[in-house]
Design a protein around this nucleic acid. Sequence first.
DNA 1: TACATACAC
DNA 2: TATGGTGTATGTA
Length: 797
Amino acid sequence: MDQKDENEPGPSNNNILYRIALNDNKAGMEGLDKEKINKIIMGATKGSRYYIHLTNVDQQVDQRIEKILQQKALLTSSQINEAQIQVDRLAMELERRRDLSRVIVHVDMDAFYASVETRDNPELKGKPMAVGTMSMLSTSNYLARRFGVRASMPGFIGKKLCPDLIIVPPDFNKYQAVCKEIRKVIAEYDPSYLPMSLDEVYMDITDHLEERLTWPEERRTYVKADNVQKDNSTEAGVVMTTETSKPEQTQCTSPVLFEDSPSFLEEQNLSPPMPDTAKLEKPMEKVIVFGTSAEEAVKELRFRIEQKTSLTASAGIAPNKRLAKVCSEKNKPNGQYTIPNDKQAVMDFVKDLPIRKVLGIGEVTEKMMNALGIKNCADLYQQRALLSLLFPETTWHNFLNISLGLGSTNLERVGGRKTMSTERTFNEISSPEEQYELCRELCKDLADDLLKEGLKVCVRVSGFISDGKPQNLITNFLCVRRPIKKISLETMDKVVQEMPAPCPQRESFFNQKRAARQQELLQSSTGKDNTIKDQTVTNPLSEVPKNDADEAKEKPDFTCPICFMKQEDWGLEGFNKHIDECLSKSPSSGYSEMPNKGEHFQRKMTANNGGHENNIHANNIKNKIVTIPSCDDLNDFIIDKNTLNAIQGNQVSEADQKACNSEILSEDVLNNIKKQADLKDINKPTMSTPPSSSGCIRDSALICPVCNIQQDTTDLTTFNRHVDICLNKGILEELKDDKKNMETIHAPAHQSGITERGSSTNKPTLRSKRPGSTPQNPASKKARTSRSSNTIKKFFK
DNA sequence: TACATACAC
DNA sequence: TATGGTGTATGTA
């Protein structure tokens, strides 16, 4: 491939440069030397893992395209004609329902993070800067954009493009504070605005406009504030009598946004139209009267934001969210664009609109569409019948809506957050210690996040009931104990001070070994190398003996989980070989009896169970993590067994010496327990624990931590059953409440004043304490459960 | 249901 | 040296 091709990115090219090359589809990036910039980017990218990754991903997309083209080739004209009739029928129906009654505004702050940083640090003025890290830039200022530096570009490439680039680490607390100020202004125009991120909101100003018509002029009149950063005097009607502005203050275009790029904007004839009200355009004018139209109202809004924060915003005004979003990009920065509420105006606008400009059409979709000869919305409409035959219903319906310029006017946020997750990108790590360390970090982060959100985690583990199957316990215990040993202590410390030993139940090392061996036997004739050893090495969580996160740091602990012999001189290979041998010697049942050689472990379990080693069994272990919604926000989570097991595994900590049962309870529950029993004593290893008693409550009366009632039993199983019922009762009560809410809550958001969604992005809804359970999203509880379990579970796979 | 993919910011 | 983190929606096996 020659250089020329490589520097002409485009989805139709059969290379991935279009993914890598400068995406200049951003305000402030017009007229750049793309060839030069792309050469630098390519130089920094080619051959990297990232490049390889992109190549792979792109190949998959190409395959999809290939498939679609094949399907297309098979279509007959009669099929297409028939589809055309169906699709047009739907199009007519959609047209009939077109809603042109609302005035929707999308407000988008210009280079938000970068502008905030520059505003707060005058030294950055006039210099190319970006907010982010060497790995990733969140945004760049307009001067940096002239070098090709933009958001979603790694900082090190930014530095290559612009060696003087200053990279400022993000300060989200600061942005949040600014965001709050901005939203206060926005709420005056639409208390039910819909925040999408810190720097973006949708508003419906229809009601405001209606009301605005009745306002006297004073109410639409503003005076430039003396200090744009202190805008307490910019309230309409107030500032008229507060002569705070000074003659030297000129028309207030943002000192932050434009100080570094005015000439560029002039060159491009993109001088910010803001505010283009005649009076405002006179530099020395102090008093500004805004009109009553949508445009004027939005200009006023942007003016006030700028007065208050010294930051500029751009806006789009249109009959629906989709179009408003496109419009806000149109005259960025510091501009606005309007599509009147008129069908013809909408269609005219949409006709030449490149599909990629539409929210939801990304690189992949664009490439697929291009392969079908579709570039803009007119093409999209043209090909509607074909698309209906090639794509799933939801997808082609969406395409049809896009091509007709249709979109939602609903600013209600459906439900609250559905998942919470933590992830980290890391270099290849083969060391188990590092893997576990990462694992621990992730757990800790997630637990912290859960706690920050007011979610409480309740983990309950109970019962080592004698049933004659001790090996399950042993193998599972060994499997999970070490790898995840510390994590839980670190992650859950904020909930509970000390954790007794858990009894993890995830797929054991032993089981995995056995399964692998069986598979190996099955496949031995095929000659495939699918050895246990391989699995041992590739599955970090099955690498029990070599993965002791605590001990391996000092020296590897090669204690065989089958025979319990410890041999520090073994290498990994030797160790695996030994395990193979041991496994091949072990009875096919594998778990039917305590290994004779297991003295080491037996000793531990003897200690754990107060000397009742013969009663150590595990098939009755109950593991649960329930994260209970706090009284004031967010979701409930029910984390699945595997997750719990993993976390419990970490909680083992000094499990060898401690009791095998544990309870990790919510703070409230824990407090209850604390009142009833001395936790310090509870967590101390004891040799006098009755075999069936919980390690947590063995020295005190069995008082249910949920209902707080003393149980008339000393039998742990019975007790646990009771606690189970109690916990479930709680959930059932919540479900009942939800049902009640469904029946009683109907008032639309705007009827109840400022709504949650208007007040905070992070706490998405005020309408319900538990947004996921609101009538808007009755099924979300289940969904969340599944999602949350997935996200955590992934860490332990 | 679980997982993969696409997308946004 | 080096290409993020978090969340949602949707399709598919």
